[in-house]
Nucleic acid binder design. Structure first.
Length: 462
RNA sequence: GGCGCCGUGGCCGAGUGGUUAGGCAGUGGCCUGCAAAGCCAUGUACACCGGUUCGAAUCCGGUCGGCGCCUCCA
């Protein structure tokens, strides 16, 4: 039984897909007006972890993750840079996807762009207007009328009255709106801005409507999971919910939110300007280290992703790679279908309980120790099963092991290095340790490390 | 102000009412020609004060401290 924490009901609930065997999931993606930062990685990795786990459990996952390519910030940035919104958005979207690939994040089943779903958005808004749940304001746009939705605020853990009480002080009161809580479904075009024609005038879609149109168009009513970063809980997701609720349709069955990232104790965000770009970090650290670090922390807990944490995760990944190399050197059969079933079940149990990736990681490391212990005593068969199991479970977390860190380079090709390694072995066997050590130092200087195992000497680039 | 989260050993970070989380780093030992990799051992951790309990880091109350949301944001 897979359980997940549902933000709407604030409790862990069993995942019961609307269609047995298939999980439909919508995850809010980025607004592409700037480069992605570490926070985007945490969110994207979280849902990739969930998706991979569900698939490993034998479920078919239909995952939709959008790219918001029209928005106030994109318009502003494009104007600053003196180019078109489409040009900027396309460039940033491509860059975002490139970083996701580096993180080994599986491409979503569908990756819709907001501008491709303007008609569905218009349909949503028309429907809301017809039902009297929205109203137009001349020259401004169309607003959603939240006042009559009793459940509004639930995702934020609040009610309408509480929200209204704060609204006056926190949100600048807009006389044009019926209520300060009302939000824009459609924004009337201003000079020079991208625009689409509609029955109520030219303009562009409001953010909250975009995700409704895309999710409902691609997944249909009553889809299983709606996810995103915790900062989207309110108002974004609440406003999405409001629109669907007002039309009497069924929306997401379950709401999942992944926690934020802190940088030295403070939330990292674009508005605070304290963010590290993802590309920058991935140039320095093994992307697998970032993935492991994310998996070591529960997705609903705020985490710190500083240099220290990334460095320690990098070392941890090396340990995983090392045992795979050792297994090969020892001549273990890693293609075996035999598994440490007990470990697999412990892993599954941890993961089934609200995506308990930290517990899963624990299982992986306990297998590493068990494998090394087995190899130490010469039990290659047992060691091989442990490693094969470990590799599979790490794979569920999206960690491909036994690989050399990206960017690792050494002077010379494999054959040349192997020749030197062989020469060192010969020198050692001849008792010429000075020569052996000289070769070792030489290779080390070229970025090649060696490990002597009973199966022989193996080397790898660092 | 309202709502909510958190405070775990050098760092990161899990967790169940009573048995070692795990990772990184450190120290000692084993292994090694020496290393590397690895294994073993090692840290009397749970903000503070009360309470419930046979027993609480884990439940309740309070105190202090930190953070988030309430406004664009993954």
């Amino acid at each position: 039984m897979i359980r997940l924490h549902d933000t709407m009901t604030r409790q862990k609930v069993e995942l019961r897909p609307r269609r047995p065997g298939e999980v439909s999931m919508y995850v809010c993606g980025p607004t592409v007006y700037d480069e992605p930062h570490l926070g985007h990685a945490r969110t994207a990795l979280t849902y990739d972890l969930l998706r991979r786990f569900l698939e490993w459990e034998g479920l078919r996952v239909v995952m939709v993750s959008n790219i918001t390519d029209i928005d106030d910030k994109i318009i502003a940035r494009a104007a600053e840079e003196g180019r078109s919104e489409a040009d900027l958005a396309e460039e940033q979207a491509a860059f975002y996807i490139e970083q996701m690939d580096r993180l080994n994040i599986l491409p979503p089943t569908e990756r819709p762009r907001a501008t491709e779903y303007v008609q569905p958005m218009i349909d949503v808004i028309s429907d809301l207007l017809d039902r009297g749940a929205a109203y137009g304001v001349e020259g401004r746009g169309v607003y959603f009328d939240v006042a009559r939705l009793p459940g509004y605020g639930r995702l934020a853990g609040r009610n309408l009255a509480q929200l209204l009480e704060d609204a006056g002080s926190r949100v600048s009161v807009d006389e044009a709106k019926h209520s300060p809580l009302d939000f824009a479904l459609w924004k009337a075009a201003r000079p020079g801005e991208p625009r689409w024609d509609t029955p109520w005038g030219e303009g562009r879609p409001g953010w909250h409507t975009e995700c409704v149109a895309m999710s409902m168009s691609l997944l249909g009513e009553d889809f299983d999971i709606h996810g995103g970063g915790d900062d989207l809980r309110f108002p974004h997701h609440q406003n999405e919910w409001a629109q669907v609720e007002a039309t009497g349709r069924k929306f997401a069955r379950l709401w999942v939110h992944s926690a934020m990232l802190n940088v030295s104790g403070e939330k990292m965000s674009k508005s605070l300007g304290n963010f590290t770009t993802l590309a920058e970090a991935l140039d320095i650290y093994d992307p697998r280290a970032m993935r492991l670090l994310v998996a070591q922390t529960h997705y609903r807990a705020t985490m710190e992703m500083g240099p220290e944490a990334l460095t320690s995760a990098t070392e941890a990944v090396k340990r995983l790679d090392a045992v795979v190399r050792r297994a090969r050197a020892e001549g273990a059969d890693l293609d075996t279908t035999e598994r440490d079933e007990s470990a697999v079940e412990t892993f599954r149990a941890a993961m089934e309980e609200d995506l308990g990736t930290p517990g899963g990681v624990e299982v992986i490391f306990s297998l590493v120790r068990a494998a090394n212990t087995a190899f130490d005593r010469g039990d290659i068969g047992t060691g091989g099963v442990k490693v094969a199991t470990m590799v599979e479970l790490a794979g569920v977390l999206g960690l491909e092991l036994g690989e050399q860190p990206p960017g690792a380079e050494a002077y010379g090709d494999d054959a040349e290095i192997q020749a030197l390694v062989d020469a060192r072995t010969a020198a050692r066997q001849a008792g010429n340790y000075a020569e052996a050590d000289r070769i070792r130092d030489d290779l080390a200087a070229r970025g090649v490390a060696m490990e002597d195992t009973r199966g022989g000497t193996v080397w790898h680039r660092i």
